[in-house]
Design a protein around this nucleic acid. Sequence first.
DNA 1: GGATTGCTCAGCCATATGGCTTAGTATGGT
DNA 2: ACCATACTAAGCCATATGGCTGAGCAATCC
Lengths: 95, 95
Amino acid sequence: MAEQSETLDAVFQALADPTRRAILSRLGQGPASVGELAAPHDMALTSFMKHLKILERSGWIVSAKTGRVRTCAIVTDRFADVGAWVYGHRSLWEG
Amino acid sequence: MAEQSETLDAVFQALADPTRRAILSRLGQGPASVGELAAPHDMALTSFMKHLKILERSGWIVSAKTGRVRTCAIVTDRFADVGAWVYGHRSLWEG
DNA sequence: GGATTGCTCAGCCATATGGCTTAGTATGGT
DNA sequence: ACCATACTAAGCCATATGGCTGAGCAATCC
């Protein structure tokens, strides 16, 4: 945690799209290639790639290329960032 | 909770800006007028109002006008929405 | 009544987002 | 060698975002 405002902007921005939240849910079950991730989404691959770039830029995922396949994996730290922000306002929804 | 994708988009989108997160933190301490909320932010009032509109549209705040003063208050349900999303992926950051 | 306060409305501007297409590169299979 | 696969790169388009200015309007104060 201990994230700066700028980073938190990107972390939340990344979550503000259903495609990207779906990608994260999928990656929660384990790493996957770009093609595997894209398959369920009715969208041009280049459009889909932009979402992956946003997720990677914001630190939600990491990826590495092996041969011609790029494999993506989720970075769980970001959940802690979001959780920390919510927890920081716990007095509002507890008492 | 039990939010739809479209709503969740707006909930997260609203958090993707430091001004808006600051507003929510301030409102966490109790209701405030538009002027009180705007004071700490070095920004034209009309620009600031757009942030309030986004927060209201996304369900993070409610507001009502009495005389010429509009008073804003936070809606704590939204914290539950965010918390529910994070909690839905708890297996990733617990084990 | 007139001035001040506290918003509110309309619209301009630069940049970002989220989709698309078309074309290109590099790897792996036969 | 050739072809298919899996991305990748470049750029177009419509709309949204986040800032601004200038003008207005209703409520309160003196």
